[in-house]
Design a protein around this nucleic acid. Sequence first.
DNA 1: CTGAAAGCGCTAACAC
DNA 2: GTGTTAGCGCTTTCAG
Lengths: 329, 329
Amino acid sequence: MKRVTIYDVAKDAGVSLATVSRVINGSDVVKGPTRDKVEAAIEKLGYKPNAIAQGLALQKTTTIGLVIPEASFTYTGQIINGVIAVAGMYNYNIMLHTTTEGVTDISDIIETIIKSHVDGVVIYNDKILVDEMDTLSKYNIPIVIIGNKMSGHNICSVYVDIEKAVYELSMKYLSNGKKDIAIIQDRKNEYAISQMIKGVTRAYKEKGMEFNNYLEIPESYRTSYNYLKDYLKDHKHDLIIANRDSQAMAVCNAAKENGIEIPKEMEVVCVIDTKYNSMVRPQISSFAIPSYDLGMVSMRVMTKMLQSDEIDEDEIELSYLFTPRQSTK
Amino acid sequence: MKRVTIYDVAKDAGVSLATVSRVINGSDVVKGPTRDKVEAAIEKLGYKPNAIAQGLALQKTTTIGLVIPEASFTYTGQIINGVIAVAGMYNYNIMLHTTTEGVTDISDIIETIIKSHVDGVVIYNDKILVDEMDTLSKYNIPIVIIGNKMSGHNICSVYVDIEKAVYELSMKYLSNGKKDIAIIQDRKNEYAISQMIKGVTRAYKEKGMEFNNYLEIPESYRTSYNYLKDYLKDHKHDLIIANRDSQAMAVCNAAKENGIEIPKEMEVVCVIDTKYNSMVRPQISSFAIPSYDLGMVSMRVMTKMLQSDEIDEDEIELSYLFTPRQSTK
DNA sequence: CTGAAAGCGCTAACAC
DNA sequence: GTGTTAGCGCTTTCAG
């Protein structure tokens, strides 16, 4: 079946294409019988306007690009859901790109994004992409960054202050005489981890001490679990802070294996909250970082940028909430 | 900055647009000095071809639509990753749509897909979407279905035979004299659950018995956990089969709460495998349903459909692997 | 080997 | 109110 075009509809209805264009765009100029004829023809022929042609003519595609490091983490999924939820409300489509480390060259993604003429792009990435953002800016594409506090011409951001969260948590422990805090480090969340380290470091400094408990662990759960199982044989900390749920779980499981009781002998806190934190035993205390909201809000900011040049707030901080569970006292 | 077009490049290079078009499309017809001039101009002006205009001219968009029920499950994330991985290899873009129950009208999504003139669509959905697929077919859009065995003109599918998996598992238990098998039912995975039920039912029938242990539980983890905690006070089964990891965990946690030892007094099997199955204690036995592969293969089939009309296999079955862990004997 | 021109489907002035 | 027409940026015959 050859795709029916606006010409076919016009001919069938016996009007010009301008008229058809008017009715499909809801212009109330077309009236009564003409409108009816057109609508009948549209219905009869099963006509659907070609968004590509519209995009060309209007110079906008009503689609926005979404860049995410990987879709398989629970929280990235939440971000996607959040973005899509409000994108749907405003009739925007989502073009999804993932920046799988080592597999996809980020500059290729940026290139594709520019070519695809999306109206804007929402980026969540653990590394900061200065060069890439410059390129995007050069082509005048509005950007919303998730996770990093930053702004500029055509750039807004939505984030949670992880540094502060970890700082406050650390201060609480240090003030209670628990001076041995460790942070799980990995490569998958460079930026988040750096924020976490800044947070503890600041707390230690304020207490006249120095922080250096970096606990660098391998990438995947299985290897990090094995690593920790070994590590915890002759190490113990008052508090271990992890970024992702799987890392916190690795700690808990490895501790158990070594007969270390959680939270009695050692406490564990996870920064990013997912439903799994409350499914495992012990349930893991975490900051309720609102991933879904991060997605929603950033897309909402995007729509605002697309409507007007005036944004009331170009750096939006979302609040976290510490949620104590069984892995802390 | 006004977006530079092919005209600008042509003018700058002192050639016609046809020539520019040829070099950006890699036609080896343009030679030596001309080619160099054009390439210099492209570089100098920062020209990027407009994919929308190309789409209009070529009648294809090199983007494919991906329809998923929700992105926040670990396994749907895997599917997305798989699809994107091979899409990237073939330079296809992904337009992501989610069919959140009650929020998004599926026919709206189909409508958007048709308008957006994607070259094809990959659908994973727990409900079978006959009407929607008919519509898509009417507009001649190639479809790959993930999860359901089906095919037709311009329709292929990639799936795992869950019915068989559950049937075999059930047979093993029934043959060992464990006759009390229950299945966790919910609304989020209608199709998968129906397959599971078919599987046990067939096994029971072959053993001359009848299956009716439907264990219908509420939607979210928290409520289903509470429900099960109560339920297991005065119920116990030889084997409980769940579809998603969170449900299996709910069972395990609720059992523990009631002093039911797993796997000694009751065994638990999860159909869909995610990394969390081996992170929780007890580790949950599961079928290793290859979500990532489902995504990869379906996108690969898509590219084949797009290249030629001849597909060697229009219903591709992927194999599962039962992976025993701590929740089974 | 390169250029001219028609056409992809639609929108938005501008006429009538 | 409705029709005409010139683009939107690119591809692709068809000439030369």
